[in-house]
Design a protein around this nucleic acid. Structure first.
Lengths: 162, 162
DNA sequence: AATAATCAGTCAATATTCCTGACATAATAA
DNA sequence: TTATTATGTCAGGAATATTGACTGATTATT
């Protein structure tokens, strides 16, 4: 096994680091291409997808929570969110604990559309997981998690571990 | 070891697939943030970085080659490339085999700037590789490569394996 | 040699996404 | 009462990318 070999830092050479950069770039591009092709039909963009995705994953998230998660300005979110609400994909309810808050959740229509978008990515990810095998997948998660800023890692873990 | 455990497809459940989606999103965001902060000072954007990166990795690449690699239109490339040439980061030479071609390469100034941009990402990637270990890194590469479209995988391998 | 195709560049118009700044309203906290 | 927070909106602008149309130089085809 790799772990029984004498320690080697060959995987930390410049070529191996650049390999990570390039694989991330190309994989991310193809991976976002699937939903992009569906979104374009509804005159939506990647920003709409992100909102649908994270509202779907965090029902009743307040607007401020979504802004922190996506790290965009409320002006940027405004247009996208308004369109999604106008077209019946998302609804907001006044908060109970804090009535200033607007809690966001997907409608039935939103749930269906998000599922369609996710399914276009699911096939790609599932195929990649299957081809690479469970150990590779663990490594994939481990490296990605360590690429994320330390200060944000907790919120990501909270996001993905449920 | 994982490989001695009875076969399991738990890693192919929806939760695990969504974990991949989310880790990719957050990791890609932080990972592109490092060079973004440097680029903004020179009034450059992410598009300039991509051109600098791939010209650096493919010296004497013709314009058409860069267009194929980046999958953008020549009109999009035009503005970015003109700026990079005007400011002395990239030069072009007439092709020898085919004198219609303009072969691109980084100047000394371009090499230094690309190195600065890469170094901001190198620390992040190297730390992630080191924390995760060589086996995890292999898995990371394996999964990313399988996420890339089959039809593009060869050109990516050609790009990264040198 | 004439014609067609390719590589590169440019001009114009447009779309999308995101930004900063300023201001307003309602609700909560000090 | 005053300050702060959560949300929303208006205005203006920047960056990235698109499609379409056209030009010039060079190479390939017939």
């Amino acid at each position: 096994m790799q772990t029984r070999l004498p320690p080697s830092n060959l995987y930390l050479r410049e070529e191996e680091l650049r390999r990570g950069v390039e694989l991330l770039y190309f994989a991310y591009r193809d991976f976002t291409g699937d939903p992009d092709n569906i979104l374009i039909k509804q005159q939506f963009g990647r920003a709409h997808h992100r909102v649908l995705y994270f509202v779907g994953r965090n029902p009743n998230i307040p607007v401020s929570g979504l802004l922190k998660l996506l790290r965009i300005t409320k002006q940027s979110l405004s247009r996208v969110l308004s369109q999604l609400m106008d077209e019946g994909y998302i609804v907001q309810e006044q908060g109970i604990m804090d009535r200033r808050q607007r809690l966001l959740k997907l409608t039935e229509k939103g749930i269906k559309f998000e599922a369609e978008l996710f399914s276009s990515q699911r096939e790609r990810i599932a195929r990649a997981y299957k081809n690479a095998g469970p150990e590779a997948v663990s490594g994939f998660w481990e490296v990605l998690l360590n690429i994320i800023d330390g200060e944000h890692r907790d919120s990501v873990l909270k996001q993905i571990e449920k």
